[in-house]
Nucleic acid binder design. Structure first.
Lengths: 112, 112
DNA sequence: CCGCATCCACGTAGATACTG
DNA sequence: CAGTATCTACGTGGATGCGG
C-alpha cells in the first residue's frame, strides 16, 4: 500500500515531533516538569527568549493540550502554566532522548 | 546554576530532536529500519520528495553518524544507505513517540 | 543511477515598542 | 504582570535542470 503525502504528515511520530521540536519546547518542559510556574517566573528561567516568542510557544503547547493555562483575574494579572497528563507523558521520552544523546554524543551537555 | 544559551543548544534532548525532526527523517528511518536500500529504491518509497532534498537529508544523517552510505563504484553507480547502530538506537524512541501519539492523538495515522 | 546548482517559497524566531 | 503589534532575518524545504 502506498501512503499519500497527507497521511505521512499525519503519522503519529511526525505529529509528536512537530510538538516537541519547537526551539524552546524542551526547556519549557524541563521547567514545568518541576511544577506550575507563572509566566514571568518561567520567562526568567529561560535566558534569551523574548516574551512574544515564549507566549507563542506556550500557545501552541496549550492548543495541542500539552500545557494548561490558568488565569486568576485581578490586578496584577496572574497566569500560571503547568503540564497536562498528556504533556507529562512526553517527559520520559525526552529522558530517553537525553539518555541516547549521552551515550552517543559526547559533546552534548546534560541539562534536561 | 544558570545555563547559557550555548549550553541550552548543546542540551542532549535538543541535539537529538534536531536530528529527528527533519521533515523526512521519520519515514527515512521507517524504510531503512527494514534493511539497507539503494538511493533510488528509497526515493521511490517516499512520495513527493525531490531527489535533492532526499540527498540533503541523507547527508545530514550521515554526518551525524545515524546513517551509513556505501558506494560501490562502477557504471551504473550503486549507492546504498543503512542505519548505523547509533541511528538504530533511535528507533525504539520513535516507537515510543508513536505509542504516545496513538494514546493521545486519535486523528493521527499509524505508519511508522 | 546518483547527485549537484540555482533560484524560490514559507514558517519560525527575534527585536522592539506599546497596553489593559 | 502578562501579554499584543510590527517589522525583519534566517533556515529549511521545494522545483527544475544539468552532469559524471
Amino acid at each position: 500500500m502506498r501512503h499519500t503525502y497527507r497521511e505521512i504528515d499525519a503519522c503519529g511520530v511526525k505529529v509528536a515531533l512537530k510538538l516537541l521540536a519547537g526551539k524552546w519546547t524542551p526547556i519549557i518542559f524541563y521547567h514545568l516538569g518541576a511544577g506550575p510556574l507563572r509566566f514571568t517566573e518561567l520567562w526568567h528561567e529561560i535566558p534569551r527568549v523574548s516574551k512574544k516568542v515564549l507566549v507563542v510557544q506556550l500557545r501552541q503547547l496549550e492548543e495541542a493540550g500539552l500545557v494548561a493555562r490558568s488565569v486568576h483575574n485581578g490586578f496584577p494579572p496572574e497566569v500560571s502554566y503547568q503540564l497536562t497528563p498528556k504533556g507529562a507523558g512526553l517527559v520520559p521520552i525526552m529522558q530517553s532522548l537525553d539518555q541516547w544523546a549521552m551515550t552517543h554524543i559526547t559533546e552534548a551537555v546534560h541539562i534536561a
